[in-house]
Every structure is written in structure tokens, then in C-alpha cells.
Simulated assay, not measured.
Amino acid sequence: MGFAKELKTGNFSLYGQLVGLLAGVLMIVLGGVTIVSHVVYSILAIVFGVLCLLIELPFFLRLCPTGPSFDKAVRALRNHWLRTLVYVIFAVVMWASLASGLTLLVIAAVAITLAAACYLVAAIRNQAQVTTSLLGGTGAAGHTVYDTRTVQTV
């Protein structure tokens, strides 16, 4: 299934992944741009952006020197409800940055709020967790579970 067809599936888990990736990149970039004027919120945005990328692209865990407990915590976020909760927390902090004045971080706040909303809809609809084939994932067509002994389609 191609990327364009994946977008037409109506799987909000897929939309959440794409918007979450976009939000992560935006938080890193906008956090860097605003670091001089809003140090605390900019650093939080960069940290949240990196966490979003680790959550949405688990293969990054292999590239980063993290501990087993951190890896386990990130893997636990495969649950839509937990991802929604984490993204809502990130969104609340980004929206709180408005207390120090209107900044570019509001764009990151909107993006992470949209990601949380997508995962909330996916959780309510009880949709399967899928990853886009654009980034090497299973895509919305089917889920392939890779085991060291066998490969099976679920």
C-alpha cells in the first residue's frame, strides 16, 4: 500500500504518528530559534521534540545511548491512551509558554495538540497501532510481527 493510500485509510494512529513527527521536528527547530528570548520553554521544547522523535521512531532508540528502563518506558507508549496523555502534557507546557508572550512556540503547541487529538481519536475508535510505510513501517495494510525465529502476519 502506498503512502497516499495509507492517508485515505482513516487510521488516526497513522495520522498521529505523522503529526507527532512533524511536532517533534517543529519543537526542536522552534526551540532553537527562540532559545535566546525564552530559555526555559525553548529547552523544554527541544527535549520534548527529541522525546517525540524517540516515541514515533523507535529505531532511534538503537542509535541513542539510553538505558533499558528508558527504552522500556518508550516502548510502553505504544498504547494510544498513554501517548495521548504524554502529548497532552507536552501540549500543556507548550501552551503555558504563551504566559511569557506570544512566540513561535505556539506553532509547536498547536502541532503537539493535533498529535494528541489524533491519538485520542485512535484510542476511542480502538484502532490498531500502525506506522507509515514511508518510514519503513508496516503501513496500514497489515501488521508484520518480526521475531528472531519466524515472520508472521497478524
Rank of each mutant, 00 (worst) to 15 (best):
Leu61Ala: 09
Val145His: 15
Ala96Leu: 15
Gly32Lys: 02
Ala116Tyr: 05
Gly24Asp: 07
Pro58Thr: 09
Val93Leu: 15
Cys52Arg: 00
Val151Pro: 04
Phe60Gln: 03
Ser13Gly: 15
Leu82Asp: 04
Ala23Asn: 05
Tyr41Gln: 06
Ile43Gln: 06
Ser37Arg: 11
Leu61Met: 14
Thr144Ala: 14
Arg83Asn: 07
Gly136Ser: 13
His38Lys: 03
Leu54Ser: 00
Val86Arg: 01
Gly31Val: 10
Val93Trp: 14
Gly10Ala: 05
Ala76Ile: 07
Cys118Lys: 01
Leu7Ile: 11
Thr131Trp: 15
Lys8Ala: 11
Ala45Trp: 10
Gly31Phe: 08
Val74His: 02
His143Arg: 06
Met27Leu: 15
Val92Phe: 11
Gln17Thr: 10
Leu22Trp: 04
Val88Asp: 02
Val93Ile: 15
Leu14Met: 04
Ile35Phe: 13
Tyr87Trp: 09
Thr150Gln: 07
Lys72Leu: 15
Lys5Ile: 10
Tyr87Asn: 02
Cys118Thr: 07
Val50Lys: 00
Phe59His: 02
Gly10His: 09
Val19Gln: 01
Phe12Met: 07
Val86Met: 12
Cys52Ile: 05
Leu77Arg: 00
Val86Trp: 13
Ala76Thr: 06
Leu7Thr: 03
Val92Ala: 12
Val92Cys: 05
Leu18Lys: 07
Leu104Asp: 09
Val154Ile: 14
Ser69Ile: 11
Tyr15His: 06
Val110Asp: 02
Val145Asp: 12
Ala109Trp: 10
Ser100Lys: 04
Leu104Gln: 07
Gln127Ser: 03
Val39Cys: 02
Ile46Asp: 01
His143Pro: 01
Phe3Glu: 01
Thr148Phe: 13
Trp95Phe: 15
Thr103Ile: 13
Gly137Gln: 07
Val29Thr: 12
Gly20Leu: 04
Val92Asp: 06
Ala99Asn: 06
Val110Pro: 04
Leu63Pro: 01
Pro65Asp: 05
Val50Thr: 04
Ser69Met: 13
Leu77Met: 13
